[in-house]
Design a protein around this nucleic acid. Structure first.
Length: 925
RNA sequence: GCGGAUGUGGUGAAAUUGGUAGACACGCUAGACUUAGGAUCUAGUGCCGAGAGGUGUGUGGGUUCGAGUCCCUCCAUCCGCACCA
């Protein structure tokens, strides 16, 4: 009987499920290994072939580690809060939970048919109350914490309160929004509301009036990483700036640790670099400039080049800067206000793309240079961003090209402070050279001048050395329905935490999933009694963003049913952090950063024993689709084959890849595909075929190029698909999907099957002694596969399997001593196939995965001869087999005496002969 | 502009520390068997050349007995960030 993958796969999936083969329990006697996939958002479209790439890889590693004797945690779950289900709910009125559960079921089926070894008992979904109870609980911990700068650690907010009680704000070293000074006696007479307002400036999870990215079309705020080019990532709608009261997470406090700890992670350079970029550390100084007409007004600037302080000839404020309207002169008022309006009306996108056009206005006010005492003009300009640094810059036209161009355009003085440097054409931006015309900095090179200038700035009390980060606190509320409700109620608009015993705060029922008439979030529609907790005046109407649940889910897998804790100490001590995390790189600055932040926070609060969630990370590449096109002759319903399209005016139209085979269009299926093509006519090529065009692009519904794994599993089986996806190339690389190659892998499995079974399906594996060659093939393969798996080179393993099967076939090997270990080697890739053969060769009960991964033995590879490549001037000319026992000199003599050597030397005397025993011989002529 | 990654046959790709470039597959060519089938088997397949041979890992250079691999230059593609002070 031929290899019947359909029956085999069905049989073993049932077996695994009935025997709970993948149930994982903590076992202190075994070393743990935690392999994690980024859990999917269960969308309505189901999985396409790109999804399983990472899942297959992690499954291969999980199974390998299991066979190596590790206790492997390999779970799967669903990131099930999110916009699509909610949009669907708005359109249909169906509760998002129903849609979500339906999609989850589909995902579960699709994942199951791939033969993944997940312990489904540990599955979590972020939208279930049992799960989000703990998301809410973690939020509470973050609400109850502040960041202590003296110890660089998250601490209980009560410690801060105790300090306030005794010393007021004096001596506080905590990460905060703005410095507020008060004495202990002042603090002690503040009412609750006042105290809470101050505490909000310190809490890790805090409420603040902040400028947010508001997307009117989605009716919600978005985080920076949810926006691309001024449009929402989801939906592509315009985004505008708006001031709203929002929950935020004080991730900025962790900036330095998030940056430094990257060094200890085994992540790709590009990903680490993306995070470094996102955190955007820059060092320099903040300097304060006094406004000359107005003694109590000061402008704070941040600079990375305090050494250029004597080159400052003007100040530029962002148009939105709070000081602008206070200092503007009467004569300039109209021009300035109209400029502010103009920039406010321009979308962020316009402002960014229009870099060439230099605009600005003089405010009429002057600032006093802190060292020279000279008056310098204050301008506003939209090249200064309100959201970075202090929203103000000290302009040094001789050292900064933007300042230079601004000064040229508006005819502002340019002072040169670089010795022997020509700045007549452009600014000197390099950090090299010597400073001049700068009093105490004269004759210092720039590096020394930076240090000296900071000393002096601090000494004179006009500023201080400062590190600035681009990273901003993360906005943590969304005006949406389908997310975690906050465990917060308000009394007199002051937030209070819901008690632990009232968690979870479940999503209340609402009549519609839309904002209220008053513009309140959908949750405001819920009647007070529909909340399972209703203290205070009202509950918080916001919900948490998508990344709330995904920031800690890897912890919940360790202890998914614990009703007392988010994870027990015992279990988290055992499983520790994730050893291998596989997922897409699109989460570089979102999920992966937030998750690191939450982990550090939970570590500081002593809930977990590690401060990085994911030790090693692999970003699987994207599998691109191969789209097909038909060419419609413009203005007709007639389609021309690819080769003849140049003869007509045509439009290329995406056509569903399921009705195209090998680029040949099935005309009947095409006519039935969409109603508008029912009466199409065709101009065919000379063979009577319609040839389609193709292109490699991202898989998407609209391009009709989505390849689902389901069809391939039906046609070839899951084992073939698993092997094929791994065989395609290195896991990190993006590659086009091409179904053609799949037959090669399928043939490999069939060929392999024939080593074990005769035509009637009975085992032909025997107890005969294996040949030396077969043992060599086996151990060569064991060596390679082990090495490759250890460095996650999953594609080359497949090649090794193919080579081994080709060699075994040639050797007519049917020896159990060889074929039994081989089937274990292959099992992580083709689990159903291998289980079946395992059973056939005499393991009547149990699973192959309870056995052990074969161990490599050097002795089988020991050779006594080697075929030496002989090269002349580095070019290989011929090969010669020589005993490996020969010494270097003996090899040399033997080769020199050969006829072929004489031929290639062409009568010349070799200058030198390099002999590397066991490797190569090289004549230098 | 800054940063990161990648450039090898017709295609996907191998080559772990410098040591036979193109393993393993797909595709293609020829042949065999054929109830013409998108099946199976055999042989060939980097390029130029009838052949001997020459040549070849994006470009140009360097180090080395020897470079796809190390160093420098430039080019191209992809990704991320970007008036970041």
């Amino acid at each position: 009987m031929e290899y019947n993958f359909r029956e085999i796969e069905k049989k073993w999936i049932k077996f695994w499920s009935e025997n709970k083969s993948y149930k994982t329990i903590e076992d202190a006697s075994k070393e743990k290994y935690y392999v994690l996939d980024m859990f999917p958002y269960p969308s309505g479209a189901g999985l396409h072939v790109g999804h399983p790439l990472g899942y297959i890889a992690s499954d291969v590693i999980a199974r390998y580690k299991k066979l190596e004797g590790f206790n492997v945690l390999h779970p799967m779950g669903y990131d099930s809060f999110g916009l699509p289900a909610e949009q669907y709910a708005i359109q249909t009125g169906q509760h998002p939970a129903i849609t979500t559960d339906k999609n989850i079921e589909r995902y579960r089926d699709q994942l199951n048919q791939m033969g993944f070894c997940y312990d489904w008992d540990r599955a979590v979904k972020t939208s279930s109350p049992e799960y989000y109870k703990w998301t809410q609980w973690i939020f509470k911990q973050m609400f109850n914490s502040f960041y202590d700068l003296s110890e660089d650690c998250t601490k209980d907010i009560q410690q801060l309160v105790s300090h306030f009680d005794v010393k007021g704000s004096d001596g506080i070293q905590a990460h905060q929004d703005e410095h507020i000074e008060f004495t202990a006696s002042e603090w002690n007479v503040f009412d609750h509301k006042q105290k809470e307002a101050i505490l909000q400036c310190y809490r890790i999870a805090y409420l603040s009036e902040s400028q947010v990215n508001w997307c009117p079309k989605l009716g919600t705020v978005l985080a920076n990483d949810e926006i691309s080019n001024g449009l929402s990532v989801r939906g592509g709608y315009p985004v505008e700036q708006k001031v709203m009261k929002q929950w935020s997470m004080r991730i900025k406090a962790f900036a330095e640790r998030l940056l430094n700890d990257l060094d200890q992670l085994d992540w790709s350079d590009s990903l680490k670099e993306q995070q470094r970029n996102w955190i955007g550390k820059s060092q320099g100084a903040s300097v304060s400039f006094q406004v000359s007409s107005n003694n109590d007004r000061r402008i704070e600037v941040f600079t990375t080049r305090p050494d250029t302080i004597f080159g400052v000839t003007f100040i530029v404020l962002a148009p939105e800067h709070e000081l602008v309207l206070d200092i503007v002169g009467e004569a300039q008022k109209d021009a300035v206000t109209s400029y502010i309006e103009k920039t406010a009306n321009r979308s962020e996108r316009d402002r960014q793309s229009d870099v060439k056009n230099i605009t600005g206005e003089f405010t009429g006010a002057y600032a006093v240079h802190p060292f020279t005492g000279k008056e310098i003009p204050i301008w506003i300009g939209d090249y200064v961003l309100a959201t970075y640094g202090t929203g103000a810059v000290m302009s040094v036209p001789c050292g900064d090209q933007r300042d230079y161009l601004f000064a040229k355009k508006f005819d502002i003085q340019i002072a040169n402070i670089f010795k022997d440097t020509d700045i007549s054409n452009c600014a000197h931006e390099e950090k090299t050279g010597v400073i001049t015309s700068s009093e105490f900095l004269n004759e210092l090179d720039i590096q020394k001048a930076i240090i000296r200038s900071i000393q002096e700035i601090e000494h004179r009390g006009i500023g201080k050395g400062k590190t600035n980060y681009r990273l901003r606190d993360a906005v943590f509320s969304r005006q949406r329905y389908w997310g975690e409700p906050f465990p917060i109620y308000f009394v007199n608009e002051t937030p209070f935490l819901v008690d632990d015993e009232n968690l979870p705060i479940e999503l209340p029922a609402v009549d519609k999933y839309l904002p209220t008439e008053e513009g309140e979030p959908p949750l405001a529609r819920a009647q007070k009694e529909q909340w399972n907790h209703s203290q205070g005046d009202r509950m918080d109407f916001n919900t948490m963003p998508g990344w709330a649940g995904s920031s800690w889910y890897f912890l919940r897998y360790m202890d998914p049913h614990n009703e007392q804790e988010f994870v027990s100490k015992e279990k988290v001590d055992y499983w520790q952090n994730v050893d291998l995390y596989i997922g897409g790189s699109e989460h570089a600055t979102g999920h992966l950063l937030y998750s690191r932040f939450w982990t550090k926070c939970l570590f500081d609060l002593k809930f977990i024993p590690f401060d990085e969630p994911f030790k090693k990370l692999i970003n699987q590449g994207m599998i691109l689709g191969r789209s097909n096109f038909v060419y419609r002759i413009n203005g007709t319903n007639s389609f021309v084959t690819k080769d003849k399209r140049k003869e007509y005016e045509t439009t290329a139209i995406h056509v569903d890849i399921s009705i195209v085979d090998n680029d040949l269009l099935n005309l009947e299926k095409f006519k039935n595909w969409l109603p508008e093509y029912k009466d199409s006519t065709f101009i065919l090529d000379d063979n009577g075929n319609y040839l389609c065009g193709y292109e490699v692009e991202k898989m998407s519904k609209s391009k009709f190029n989505v390849q689902t794994p389901d069809d391939l599993v039906v046609d070839y089986g899951a084992d073939t698909l698993r092997l094929y996806e791994m065989f395609l190339g290195p896991i990190e690389q993006s590659k086009p999907w091409d179904t053609k190659g799949i037959s090669g892998v399928h043939n490999f499995l069939r060929k392999c099957w024939r080593l074990y079974c005769s035509v009637d399906g009975t085992s032909i594996v025997s107890d005969e002694n294996p040949s030396k060659e077969s043992m060599k093939t086996l151990h060569k393969t064991i060596k390679r596969v082990r090495e490759d798996l250890n460095r996650f080179s999953l594609n080359t393993c497949v090649s090794s399997f193919m080579i081994a099967v080709n060699e075994f076939t040639e050797q007519r090997c049917h020896s159990k001593e060889v074929l039994e270990p081989f089937i274990i080697l292959l099992a992580p890739y083709a689990p159903h196939f291998c289980e079946e053969l395992w059973e056939k060769i005499g393991h009547a009960s149990g699973s192959l995965f309870d056995s052990q991964f074969p161990v490599f033995k050097e002795e089988f590879l020991i050779e006594n001869a080697y075929e030496y490549p002989v090269s002349f001037n580095g070019k290989m000319r011929f090969k010669v087999e020589l005993p490996l026992s020969l010494k270097q000199e003996e090899i040399k003599t033997a080769v020199e005496e050969m006829e072929l050597t004489t031929k290639w030397l062409e009568g010349k005397e070799p200058k030198k002969v390099i002999v590397v025993p066991g490797k190569i011989i090289n004549f230098v002529v």
